[in-house]
Computed example of a mutant assay.
Amino acid sequence: MQPLLLLVALLLPPGARAGEIIGGQEARPHSRPYMAYVQIHTPVGMTICGGFLVRDFVMTAARCFRRQTVVILGAHNIRRFERTQQHISVLRAIHPRFDQQKNLNDIMLLQLANRARQNRFVRPVALPRTQARLSPGAWCTVAGWGLVSLSRRTDTLQEVQLTVQRDGECHRRFRFYNGRIEMCVGDPRERKSAFLGDSGGPLVCGRVAQGIVSYGNRQGTPPAVFTRVSSFLPWIRRTMSRFQQWGQAEIPL
């Protein structure tokens, strides 16, 4: 357990923690076919992030960037062989100037080396159609394979329902919180949150991916900060359009 915590800490900027599902439950197997398990290989070992399939790309957090990355789609129990799984290498990663010190622009698109085979186990999730903001109190769900406590891990996909909070809740807790491009998620009165080991996972509201797990406090108490997907729609559209042609003469990841 300790080596894993140390590795995760090394991959994060000061004061930030990657996402963990706290206070949730095991998801129904393959009920979230857009989920991606992102394996990140580093010189000191392997760590993980969450992600989600969007068209021919996997969207995740920019803090998860490393040059050797593999995406697993169609998984429920990531420690077992499942015929539903597709293991695909990442060709390149694209993000809009992630600011590690302020945790801003924490969004990244992974272009896969091969197209995902879409079926009932692997299917993309919808993105917002407009840049309209979600109202405080909106119910959403976040899912991932992160730790379920500081002493217990899970091999199966977990999920938890969370509510969108007013920006003031995060302005008071996080120095650089920016409500224009970030979302404040999780009722501070409940022990339900995203915390350690699952950054990059999606916040799904009404079958639409509205947020990306970004960071929270060191105790794992809500609320946590999620990247606001709708704020990046122009960048997402431009990036997908640019790289939609396979086999372009680009420098691979």
Rank of each mutant, 00 (worst) to 15 (best):
Q111L: 15
A61I: 06
T156D: 03
W235N: 04
M183R: 13
G201S: 15
A16P: 01
R117K: 15
Q245L: 11
L147D: 10
Q39D: 03
T227K: 03
G186P: 02
P33R: 08
H87T: 12
V225A: 04
L5E: 12
R79W: 06
R79N: 09
I236F: 08
F195R: 00
T84V: 14
S31E: 14
F98Y: 15
W145G: 06
P128N: 14
A62W: 03
R66W: 07
R123K: 12
M46L: 03
N119Y: 04
T84C: 14
Y177M: 08
T42V: 11
D56R: 14
W235G: 08
Q118A: 05
F57Y: 15
S193I: 01
F52P: 00
L112I: 12
F195Y: 14
C140H: 04
V229K: 02
Q86G: 11
R172W: 02
T60S: 15
G206Q: 05
A132M: 12
P252T: 11
Q100D: 09
T141I: 04
F232H: 10
W235T: 02
G168V: 13
G15Y: 10
A116C: 06
E82V: 12
R32H: 13
A138F: 02
T156Q: 12
N103R: 14
S199P: 06
R97G: 02
C49W: 08
G144V: 07
H30M: 02
D56K: 14
W235C: 08
Y215R: 04
F176Q: 14
R129W: 05
Y177R: 06
R242A: 15
Q86I: 14
R242K: 12
I236P: 04
G247K: 06
F232P: 09
L11C: 10
V213Q: 07
A16R: 15
L110S: 00
F243D: 09
S135P: 00
G74A: 07
G206P: 07
I22F: 10
Q86V: 12
P188C: 09
T47M: 06
A132H: 09
L4A: 11
A27G: 01
R175V: 00
I48R: 15
P29L: 05
L7C: 14
R191Y: 02
L127H: 03
E169S: 13
V122A: 03
R180T: 14
S149I: 02
P128T: 11
L4I: 08
F226M: 09
F65A: 09
F121Q: 06
F243H: 15
G19V: 05
G50L: 13
P128E: 11
G24C: 07
P43Y: 03
G211E: 05
G247N: 07
P33W: 06
M59L: 13
V58A: 03
P96V: 11
M240R: 09
G186Q: 11
V71N: 00
S193V: 01
A62S: 08
N119T: 02
F98T: 05
T163W: 03
G216W: 04
Q85C: 11
P14T: 13
V164Q: 05
Q25E: 13
R80E: 15
E169K: 14
F65C: 00
V148Y: 03
A224C: 01
P223M: 07
K192D: 09
P3H: 02
W246F: 08
